[in-house]
Amino acid sequence: MANPETSGLATEMALDQNVEKSSPVKDFWRKFKKQRLALVAGVFILILVIIAIIGPVITPYSSDEPDYANVLQGPSLEHLAGTDNYGRDIFSRILEGTRISLSVGTISVLLGALIGTILGLISAFYGKWVDSIIMRICDVLFAFPGILLAIGIIAILGPSLVNVVIAISIFSIPNFARIVRSSALSIKSTVYVEATKSIGAKNRRIIWKHIFPGTISSIIVNFTMRIGTAILTAASLSFLGLGAQPPTPEWGAMLSGGRDYLSTAPHLTFYPGLAIFLTVLAFNLFGDGLRDTLDPKIKD
């Protein structure tokens, strides 16, 4: 005869296993594993994050001390990416720049996503004139193509890296607002939100506990995609002299500084550009993989 206590435990364990088998995280991982390129990109991003955190510890040379005995040297075993017009090791400066690019990209998109998500949720939930006002503001922001809005904002605030972050977060807002709004609108009309309303839940609770969770996957996908764009835009602005100023080892600013040496020492522009390209490529590939995994319309 079976001991009721142990059999109960066994059922519980079996239930636990069932729950774990169908958990969204495992489900996600099972599908995401198949996206080889996205996996490689993810590992690359992880390495970048580690470099960004421990940067100064692993750089072989100082990133800002000039060495006038070794200016404009080509790549060698000693200086993997050569030296610039001040004799600074370009590889070390690129490693240092990782921290700047990743934090500018992440912080600006995070700010934009935060404000955009709140606006999108409010817009979808309250509708009517609230929705009209928020969407018209988004239309106005959308009327200025991406980087132009950023340039306009920097023209007001003045060129600096902090202002680049502000500018990029402002032009990310309408993007998130629209995406969150449309996904929240479809959730708002579902039966369970109706049910929550009918038992008298407060608006704030409905928005955050019931509508918001449904929009998270589209926010995450958009977030990853936007980081690539944000890093690219920040580097472009620094290249134009509107963002990070020399001697900051920002990739776009380094490229801009190397322009005068294009014919004699092309490595000054080549390696910082390669760093931007690979980083943005990694975020875009990772974002593509996430989208293909999380989008219910795409079957495997």
Binding site: L232, F239, L255, T269, G273, F277, V280, N284
Partner: peptide, 10 residues
Amino acid sequence: VSGISIPSFW
């Protein structure tokens, strides 16, 4: 995807 990721100035 490379065309989207490449910095135009580079």
